[in-house]
Design a protein around this nucleic acid. Sequence first.
DNA 1: TTGCTCCTCACGTCACGTGAGGTGGC
DNA 2: TTGCTCCTCACGTCACGTGAGGTGGC
Lengths: 203, 203
Amino acid sequence: VGVEVDVDEFGGDAPAATWSVGELAAATGLTVRTLHHYDEIGLATPSLRNHAGHRRYTLADVRRLHRVAALRGFGFSLTEIAWLLDDRALDVRELVRQQLDQVEDRLARSERLRDRLAAVLVQLDHAEAPSAPALLQLMEEMTAVEHTYTPEELDELAERRRQATAGLTEDQLREMNDHRQAMRAQLTPEQIAEMNRRRMRRS
Amino acid sequence: VGVEVDVDEFGGDAPAATWSVGELAAATGLTVRTLHHYDEIGLATPSLRNHAGHRRYTLADVRRLHRVAALRGFGFSLTEIAWLLDDRALDVRELVRQQLDQVEDRLARSERLRDRLAAVLVQLDHAEAPSAPALLQLMEEMTAVEHTYTPEELDELAERRRQATAGLTEDQLREMNDHRQAMRAQLTPEQIAEMNRRRMRRS
DNA sequence: TTGCTCCTCACGTCACGTGAGGTGGC
DNA sequence: TTGCTCCTCACGTCACGTGAGGTGGC
């Protein structure tokens, strides 16, 4: 539904300010497609359309949109956001607590995964040729015995983590970049596409 | 493609052991649908089919499947796993490092999200009626000023986290359960379905 | 006339889950 | 004959991304 009044045809009253999708996208950092999507599912619908059928968001619409964006930032699903905004959530505290539980859970998994990956990196350096078969053998050993690390290995592991995140020198960064460039030059188009897709999802 | 020999029709040689999808699913903890999927995309295809067209996995197939499962446990995508298993990965160390970077990134996001959710819980307790509007106002305040916490609030926050994860007493757990039961009794079928879906994805 | 923004389909994503409808061996 | 396992479609998931093909105002 939604009011289909042409905003250009307002009568005596001063016309209230409205926003187009593009303007809102620029202002909120959301994409136009995202605004379309929220409209499609009825989560945030513009109250008006102009004579050409273009969406026109009122101030109230913009406010709702900001709430949606804020709630997304807290990790709620669009369904849950709809419940909250329409005041149909039964127990807000419980909802937040469940959300927290989920995040704690993911956090714990990610930490274990990080440690195991860091350990793999350390072991790969110990290997003479870090090939795929070497990696596989390594992982089978790791999953089999759940290897306990020596203090030296744990140090190396922490060092790895530091290097992976913290500031590298200009030279190191350039070297890594050169290496990646050389690698990419040998990739098939589909492999490159795949890598780009993964990078997009990360940001 | 794939060899379409009937395993029941082996000649003089002792028939090698093979597994059905159901047996493998039970043994590996994967679902039958997952095995079908890996077959569909060519990641792990059974070498044989019996006369009725049923999949028959040889020992080599099972070994490959275990590698797939192991690599999944390290967070690699099915495409990456295919590269690794077919030894088509260009730089194994770089692949592992990228994987580690991604995990570190997710980890950092999750930590921030956890802190903000815990803070919301604390604030909800300060509010007299923890309703959806109260939650929204709270979040707007939080995103606006990026509120700095007092030492007392930080303590409460840590306490929240502890309660959310660590061992609660039997009484507390029972009470929470009763509460959830009561809440569920008021849910619409679609809301229940939604909650179940979320729970499935978590495990 | 040329750009720019806007519109509505409609398919693709990732790794499967979930029926639907049917077959084959014990 | 009844269960059980197996089979192949084929749609659904979640929150959009990405064209495709077209319209309207400056």
